[in-house]
């Protein structure tokens, strides 16, 4: 046959295919969770909320190269906005509460972005830690609004669309989380492939070069911080709506650090990597801590060391790495024949 060589795909068609594949994978993983682990939906919903936080972190760290250990401030901003509206405002519509979380995260993102982006490198990292510690201290101080160290309770969302109640099994919350993740993933794929996304990738690679193209770097980064805040805020709101409580841990340094670990684990600068990193890390942690309550942290540490040593670009690089190994093994065999 003459036409054995496949025509090269256009970049747009190729990227659409990747997006569709990612959405299909999320939907499939969501269905597997629902069918195979009906008793663990509460845990899986927490994984989904964390996935939104890690995706959000990927936007600023993976795509823009901003180092931060304070990203949970954005998650907590959303969680408290949503929780306070429910507990003090008496709002019960879960979609309104999610929107409040989005707005709360957006505002927190813009404010912390304006602070953190004043510096670069290590001072930036220190500023980010200061931001999350200040947010945490503020939430503790305003205990009349936030419940302080006791946590904010009294969040009782009504049924979703007036029909699906948030029951004890957590099915509604879980499905809401999966749907939210699908929408956010599709939106973020569009974002990172857009001209703005291209500019942000340019900023990550070489700020001076971007300036030499005539682009304004800081406004672009602040805008990305706002978008990132909205995504993290949605995660926080999902957590508030599905668990009914918001604690100080939602904007802790520990949560920020573990989000960064999950991102590096999966591969920064790739939305798929952020998701795979979150799911594999949390499921591994969950399984190992149940199986071995004494040494589970050691095992988690060993896994992290292994990934960082052998897959410095994270789990998302595993397929390409394996393909490379197979090719290398095949090459001498051909040469010797």
């Amino acid at each position: 046959m003459a036409a054995t060589k496949m025509a090269p795909r256009s970049p747009i068609a190729r990227d659409r295919l990747v997006t569709a594949g990612g959405l299909a994978a999320i939907a499939a993983a969501g269905a597997i969770g629902l069918v195979l682990f009906p008793n663990d939906l509460g845990f899986l919903t927490r994984v989904l909320a964390t996935a939104l936080l890690v995706l959000s972190l990927d936007l600023v760290t993976g795509y823009c190269g901003v180092a931060t250990l304070g990203h949970a401030a954005l998650f907590g901003g959303g969680a408290y906005a949503s929780g306070m509206l429910a507990a003090h405002g008496g709002i019960q519509d879960p979609l309104v509460l999610l929107a409040a979380g989005l707005a709360g995260g957006l505002v927190t993102g813009l404010v912390s972005g304006l602070v953190i982006l004043r510096a670069t490198g290590l001072p930036q990292l220190v500023l980010s830690i200061a931001v999350v510690q200040l947010a945490s201290a503020l939430a503790n101080k305003l205990s009349g609004w936030t419940g302080g160290s006791d946590g904010l309770s009294g969040i009782s969302p009504g049924p979703l669309f007036g029909r699906f109640a948030f029951d004890l099994w957590g099915q509604t919350g879980y499905l809401l989380g999966v749907a939210l993740l699908l929408v956010v993933f599709a939106a973020l794929r569009a974002l990172v492939l857009s001209p703005f996304g291209l500019l942000c990738r340019g900023i990550r690679e070489d700020v001076i070069r971007v300036g030499a193209l005539g682009a304004r770097v800081r406004p672009a980064l602040v805008a990305m911080y706002g978008i990132s805040g909205a995504v993290a805020g949605l995660g926080g709101a999902l957590s508030a709506v599905t668990t009914g409580v918001v604690g100080l841990d939602s904007l802790s340094f520990e949560r920020s650090a573990s989000a960064l670990v999950m991102l590096v684990f999966g591969g920064a600068g790739s939305l798929g990597g952020a998701l795979v990193g979150t799911v594999v890390f949390q499921v591994f942690e969950h399984a190992v801590s149940a199986a071995n309550p004494f040494h589970w942290l050691t095992l988690v540490g060993l896994l992290l060391i292994a990934v960082v040593l052998f897959l410095p670009r994270g789990l998302q690089a595993l397929p390409a790495r394996l393909a490379g190994l197979v090719r290398r093994r095949a090459a001498p065999a051909r040469g010797g024949a």
């Binding site: 569009a190 001209p195 703005f196 005539g214």
Partner: peptide, 18 residues
């Protein structure tokens, strides 16, 4: 990216860069 910047289009965040 240079052309998009020259044309003032790098604030567009929805459609594919190409």
């Amino acid at each position: 990216l240079a052309i998009l910047q020259r044309e003032g289009r790098t604030a567009r965040a929805i459609r594919h860069a190409a």
